[in-house]
Design a protein around this nucleic acid. Sequence first.
DNA 1: CTGAAAGCGCTTACAG
DNA 2: CTGAAAGCGCTTACAG
Lengths: 335, 335
Amino acid sequence: MRKNITLKDIASELGVTAMTVSKALNNHPDISEARKKQILEMAEKMNYIPNALAKNLRTKSSSLIGVIVADNSNPYFANSIKGVERVLSLNNYHSIIFNSNEDPKRERMFINDLRSLNVAGIIMAPALGNKQNVEMLKGIHIPYVLFSRYIDEITDTYVIADDISAGYLATKYLLEKKGGKVVFINSNLDVSTARNRMLGYNKAFAESGLPIDSGLVFSGALYISDGYELTKKILKKISPPFSLLCYSDYIAIGALQALSEENIKIPQDVALMGIDNIEYSAFTNPKLSTVALPSMQIGISSANLLIKIIKSKTSLDIKSKQIILRPHLMIRDST
Amino acid sequence: MRKNITLKDIASELGVTAMTVSKALNNHPDISEARKKQILEMAEKMNYIPNALAKNLRTKSSSLIGVIVADNSNPYFANSIKGVERVLSLNNYHSIIFNSNEDPKRERMFINDLRSLNVAGIIMAPALGNKQNVEMLKGIHIPYVLFSRYIDEITDTYVIADDISAGYLATKYLLEKKGGKVVFINSNLDVSTARNRMLGYNKAFAESGLPIDSGLVFSGALYISDGYELTKKILKKISPPFSLLCYSDYIAIGALQALSEENIKIPQDVALMGIDNIEYSAFTNPKLSTVALPSMQIGISSANLLIKIIKSKTSLDIKSKQIILRPHLMIRDST
DNA sequence: CTGAAAGCGCTTACAG
DNA sequence: CTGAAAGCGCTTACAG
């Protein structure tokens, strides 16, 4: 690799010292306009690229931000990452991305990598119910924001959707429209999102006065295929008409496929509803009703919050470090 | 932020010097087993995290790799990124991600950011037909791999799918199964993938002896909504039965929605085919036939190739730096 | 086997 | 307004 141009190279070209060049390049007041102009032009001409690592080492600052998710190809995370990347690059930060695959050991390893790289902060969706790594983050005083999920509702810093509302809005709508038989395919209850959507489900039932049948609730769905297989199983045990609420649109697409294969009429026999509002949901057949979560906005807010934390000299009130974004119903043709 | 533990801290704790500690930590041979053990234990106890920036600065190496795509939330790129991240993190590299939004100016800015961070290499899907930035990459001798697309077929380093084959396999299949009326909704012809899929389309026609009707080819589709709207337009001009080949599954999902709304029977009236084989394609109704491209494998191979280039002392033969992966037909229910 | 010296490229006080 | 000195945390020759 060709040798990079350094401050020294520019300096010797101009017969000044490196610090004078540094000052010119950093808009330091202690420098004459003529010198500054001369130096800037030479830097331009020599195609100077500052060495950010050296700068970081010296100033103990950093433009690097770690972003840890379970899986960047999950459309929900993909959207959030897009929001994060947009805000960070706009503010001259750089996103280092890791997929934890929901494995706390990998997550821990990545956090140590990020410490080693001296990152300015970390944005992460903590792996399934793993408490220790978030504790570690707090312990080492690296600015961090959890996104999409939290571990400790009271003490963590996070940006999430109001998952209780999401579960509540969906269930309430289905109860009113289709009655009390609301089957719920939920995700892994180790995740705060799944627990809270369940709470919302229960709340809607409580409000309606209708009894909850725990035999209608299924947990642990993670992939499209789980939605597909669980729905097939459900159809053998529970006879239509009923409503089917899924933890995510992703899961609901699997359910949709199973329902189609069994020639179930949607929404007449089974009213199907997802949560998330991923792009594909508007293009399924029938179009999927869902609860829209602001996935990109969660990324945007997380990045903005992290930057605010990094830049604030005094520590912020915990309340201002917990952002909960509101979901809304998106009724299409499947309910 | 709390002060980090340094080599010096460990050294003074043990009454040795920093270089001795450095040697112990780096498995240098010039050190007694007893000292090494003692130092390793102390480092562990003090929870030492090496400063990668200082190391990089000194050794002029780097664990950072830049990854530039148009949009990380595009399912095709999302999969490739997943492959890249997997290989890089396995090899102790770190992925810095940028979305160019197909804007060459942003791309250029990001490349300069990456130079500034002294990255070990760059993996990128070059923005729409932009030649200059790749030329710059070559000029500054940073190891790079283009993925999914190339700019200059002969001289670039890249990992791509065989897009000519993809277009050819799809068109040939449709010609044989449904005859010569194959409508093609293509993407922006500034991208090598679109140009090559078009070549494959032409090749299949040439082979079949059937005449090409240029009125059947539509270019420039980028989003799901383009697939939807173009299909609506096409249905007004061209009467079924015909085949409809789409540049991507993503586009095909938009087309599928338009066809469903118009009550077109698939595949009887319109045989629909995509390219990519994204996860959703197996769950549409009817299930989408497509040409499967190894999107994750492209990411994996790109990362492996880049690492190979970084580690090789002598420059590699250009042929070994151009990897073309084979697509295959995935026939489901829409054709 | 251990240490003193130098330097990666930068910036921060401090002199003059 | 400009420069000499020191140091961020690390590693690489080189002595001993």
